[in-house]
């Protein structure tokens, strides 16, 4: 199980990356994460939405209400240009951390 703090820190890159793959609504995003993490990342579902609103407030995602095929209104979130740039920045940082840990733990050969 991933700790709350780490899950919180990873929320932004994860959500932005999911949306980079196409627009999605909240429940979809949660399901997606569950599937990818095999249940190791667990959020209170309710807190996803304020987080999405924060990203929207920062201009990283945008949203729109649309009628779903089951006849319910759903709010779909898309990544914005600014969101993509932010995602790239996040990626570089996370990969750097990943590479350091991988080397330290002997998962990849250290560069000479």
């Amino acid at each position: 199980m991933i700790s709350k703090a780490l899950a919180g820190a990873a929320a932004k890159p994860i959500i932005l990356s999911i949306l980079d793959g196409g627009e999605a609504y909240g429940y979809q995003i949660i399901k997606h994460i569950q599937k990818l993490s095999g249940g190791t990342v667990l959020w209170n579902d309710g807190t996803l939405y304020p987080f999405l609103h924060r990203l929207e407030g920062q201009g990283l995602v945008s949203s729109a209400w649309r009628l779903s095929d089951v006849g319910r209104r759903r709010k779909y979130y898309q990544i914005t240009k600014k969101g993509r740039r932010e995602m790239d920045r996040e990626r570089i940082q996370w990969l750097a951390v990943d590479s350091i840990l991988a080397q330290l733990w002997g998962l990849t050969p250290r560069p000479a």
């Binding site: 209170n44 309710g46 807190t47 939405y49 304020p50 609103h53 924060r54 407030g57």
Partner: peptide, 21 residues
């Protein structure tokens, strides 16, 4: 239960809504 505690969720919303701008 999965949605999370009401107070906690409300707090999260509050944080977002009361940003400076």
């Amino acid at each position: 239960k999965k949605m999370g505690d009401y107070g906690f969720v409300e707090k999260e919303y509050r944080k977002v809504r009361w940003t400076k701008p």
